[in-house]
């Protein structure tokens, strides 16, 4: 794994990275396809070489999403000897999907997450919870990863990564450590789960009253998990249940959510090097392969 940026003291900045699988024969590959997921907070790409996940990259989208789509793609291709034109089909997804100039088709992140989760965990997955940078969605899928029911909230920051970034910043805790830090012995009362802005004021009040940081961050993780729980209730949780998106890496939210649901989320399969933020890009890549095969059969 290669760290792309040196760690600056900006607590909400999670580490960007890219990954290349060993032993991939890029130059003799028959079909290389890619999926690119341009979210409002992070951009991800997954490249499949002859049906194997060969490389991926995760970076911050920043203020220019077309630029970040090019950047994340070039990180994923770096050192492979393969150029963008060598890819047979590219599907874009995510908030910025219509702004990816080199994608052949845009597909919604809901469909891509369903398919991606099905690939990562297999056909037993029935419920996918994706907690993204600026949205939160619950998806029911069938054994092929096709959507049966979904609900999304992208209007309100409560229950999203941005909400967590606000708290990381407030408490000066690097965002990737928030989960561990929140696992306190005495579970505090949750802060208001309905608005990040008001939750932040509450948190400031708690800090002034002398509550330790760990307790405040636990209160917020608790609030966020409850918020997400009510979203899931609308769609219904059927096992197997999995969590994708950045917050899947936050044990503080995940453990509390599992407790409230009474259901444990499947852990990431150990054999493959997956990142839960990749489900969208992986799903998009699989759609790319299908669409390429369909187009080729007709020509």
């Amino acid at each position: 794994m290669k760290k792309l940026e040196s760690e600056k003291k900006e607590y909400w900045k999670w580490p960007e990275y890219s990954f290349k699988a060993e032993g991939v024969d890029w130059n003799n590959a028959k079909i290389i396809v890619a999926g690119i997921d341009v979210g409002s907070v992070s951009s991800k790409t997954a490249i499949f070489v002859d049906d194997e996940l060969a490389s991926f990259s995760i970076i911050r989208t920043g203020s220019n999403s077309p630029e970040s789509s090019q950047k994340v793609m070039s990180h994923a291709l770096e050192g492979t000897g393969v150029k963008l034109n060598d890819l047979k089909y590219i599907v874009s997804t995510g908030y910025g999907r219509v702004n990816v100039p080199f994608a052949q088709r845009a597909i919604t992140e809901i469909a891509c997450h369903g398919r991606g989760a099905n690939y990562i965990w297999g056909p037993t997955v029935k419920t996918v919870l994706d907690m993204g940078g600026q949205d939160c969605k619950a998806i029911s899928i069938d054994e092929k990863g096709k959507i049966v029911n979904f609900i999304m909230n992208d209007k309100c920051a409560a229950g999203t990564g941005r909400g967590m970034e606000v708290f990381a910043d407030l408490l000066s805790i690097p965002i990737e450590n928030i989960g561990e830090t929140s696992l306190v012995k005495d579970e505090p009362k949750p802060v208001s789960s309905t608005c990040v802005v008001f939750a932040k004021s509450e948190a400031l009040g708690l800090l002034r009253q002398g509550s330790p940081k760990e307790s405040v961050v636990a209160a917020y993780c608790s609030a966020m998990s409850h918020r997400v729980f009510t979203l899931l209730e609308r769609v219904g949780v059927k096992t197997e249940f999995v969590i994708t998106g950045g917050i899947a890496k936050n044990i503080g939210v995940v453990s509390r959510l599992e407790k409230e649901l009474g259901v444990k989320a499947l852990p990431l399969p150990k054999e493959q090097k997956f990142d839960p933020q990749l489900a969208g890009a992986i799903g998009a890549s699989l759609f790319a392969k299908t669409l390429f095969m369909k187009a080729n059969k007709q020509s």
């Binding site: 979904f150 999304m152 309100c156 608005c195 009510t230």
Partner: peptide, 16 residues
């Protein structure tokens, strides 16, 4: 397929 469109915020839950 059932799609639920809308949002939940501080003032309530609104989905079609």
């Amino acid at each position: 397929m059932i799609g639920n469109y809308g949002y939940k915020d501080g003032s309530g839950e609104f989905y079609i």
